[in-house]
Amino acid sequence: MNVFRLTGDIAHLLAIILLLMKIWKTRSCAGVSGKSQMMFALVFTTRYLDLITNFISLYNTTMKMIFIASSYGTLYLMFLKFRATYDSNHDTFRMEFLVVPVAGLSFLVNHDFSPLEILWTFSIYLESVAILPQLFMISKTGEAETITSHYLFALGSYRALYILNWVYRFYFEGFFDLIAVVAGCVQTVLYCDFFYLYITKVWKGKKLTLPA
């Protein structure tokens, strides 16, 4: 464990808490992409299958359970409890355009052709593009609530911090996982446009609006 990975995991946990807070306090999931949240739940489900079989540490097991529980909790809030506030008209990104190629790629490019490894690879590839429906939705509505922009900033920062963690582990532990690094870089690059808007607007107290 190193400081980059720890802060990355905390940023990830913060993002999930911010989203749950936003939905619970505003009693609305307006501006949040249900499709991205469905893909995040799929990411955690396919990545943490070893939760039962492979104990690594109490921290690892606890965080995995929190991530799985909160992702399904978010789906419950969005599609059941506050379903009336779900903005399906603007959440129109075709998930199959992401899930199918990612599934195909995880069969072609992986470290080991075993079910658990292919599912892990699938979850890594899927996570790198899972935010696209959310970013697409913001581009369609042209704006995002401030707390939603904080959620996205924390979520984007988590994988950026993981890149620093992989640099650290490469030099100090000789650990290098090409699949995780490439997918992590793609994932972080997808946030660049949002990071620019967030830093130039939200940090100046303005609302996050996209140039028309």
Binding site: I56, F67, F175
Partner: peptide
């Protein structure tokens, strides 16, 4: 070298 260590990362 590429090594897929046990998945100790989240």
């Amino acid at each position: 070298e590429i090594c897929s260590m046990p998945k100790d990362e989240l």
